[in-house]
Simulated scan of single mutants.
Amino acid sequence: MNSNRVTLIGKLLDDPKVRTIELRGGSSDIVSLWLEVRNGERVDRFTVEIYCPAQQEAAKAMRQGVRAEVTGALRHDRWKDKTTSKWIGKVFVAIDPAEGKIKSLGLADNL
């Protein structure tokens, strides 16, 4: 069992985005969401990247303004910028096959 687990409830700030990456012998889709989470006066925004085909289909049915519950793993990605040679990084929530889920909680009311 994965001990790196996070659950967020927030509002989708945009419709889901689908990217296709080329792999040896084929391609794979990644569905990305931009989620706004409010806690009192604090507002945080998270990127969610979905690699699980079943959860991708659930996410694709959602639209901007939907309140969603996301369970996944925190990840950190780093890469070197080709123009500046500086390292850049981001933290995001990943939903891997059989390791997380997304579900709609209906339309957001000033979440």
Rank of each mutant, 00 (worst) to 15 (best):
A94M: 02
G25E: 14
D109L: 11
W87T: 05
E36R: 14
S3Y: 11
G25A: 13
L74Q: 04
R67H: 03
D29R: 13
A68I: 02
Q64G: 00
E99L: 11
V43M: 14
D44A: 15
A54K: 10
C52A: 03
E36L: 15
G65Y: 03
S27D: 03
V48S: 07
S28T: 09
T84I: 06
N39A: 15
T83G: 07
R78N: 11
V37A: 04
D81S: 06
I21C: 00
G106C: 08
P53G: 01
A68K: 02
L107V: 06
N110V: 12
A54C: 03
A94Y: 02
E69T: 02
D96I: 05
G106V: 09
W34C: 14
G40T: 08
T71Y: 01
N2W: 02
Q64R: 10
P97H: 15
I88P: 01
M62G: 01
R42A: 09
L107G: 05
F92Q: 10
V43E: 15
V6N: 00
E57G: 04
I102T: 06
D29W: 07
V91C: 07
W34N: 15
Y51C: 02
L23R: 14
T84P: 02
Q64H: 06
I9Y: 01
S32G: 12
D81M: 04
E36D: 08
A68V: 11
S104F: 03
A54N: 08
I50C: 00
T84M: 02
D15M: 06
L8F: 10
E69S: 09
F46D: 10
K17P: 02
M1H: 14
T84G: 01
I21D: 02
A61T: 13
A61E: 14
S28F: 10
F92N: 04
S28L: 08
N2D: 06
F46P: 04
V66Y: 12
G89N: 03
K17D: 15
D15G: 09
K17W: 11
Q55P: 00
K82M: 08
I88H: 12
D29I: 08
A59L: 00
A98C: 11
R38N: 10
G40C: 07
R67T: 04
V18K: 07
R78F: 10
E69L: 05
Q64Y: 02
N4I: 00
I9E: 04
S28E: 13
H76T: 15
E57Y: 01
I88C: 13
E49A: 14
I50E: 03
G65R: 05
L12E: 05
D77K: 15
R45N: 13
R78G: 08
I30F: 08
L105M: 13
V70F: 06
R24Q: 11
T7H: 02
L35T: 07
V66C: 08
K82P: 09
K101Q: 09
F92T: 03
T71E: 07
G106Q: 11
G25I: 15
R45W: 01
H76W: 12
L23K: 14
G106K: 11
A68M: 10
V37R: 08
L8Y: 10
K11T: 15
P16L: 04
A94R: 09
A68W: 01
D96G: 08
G10F: 02
L111W: 06
D14F: 12
K101E: 09
P97F: 14
V93R: 00
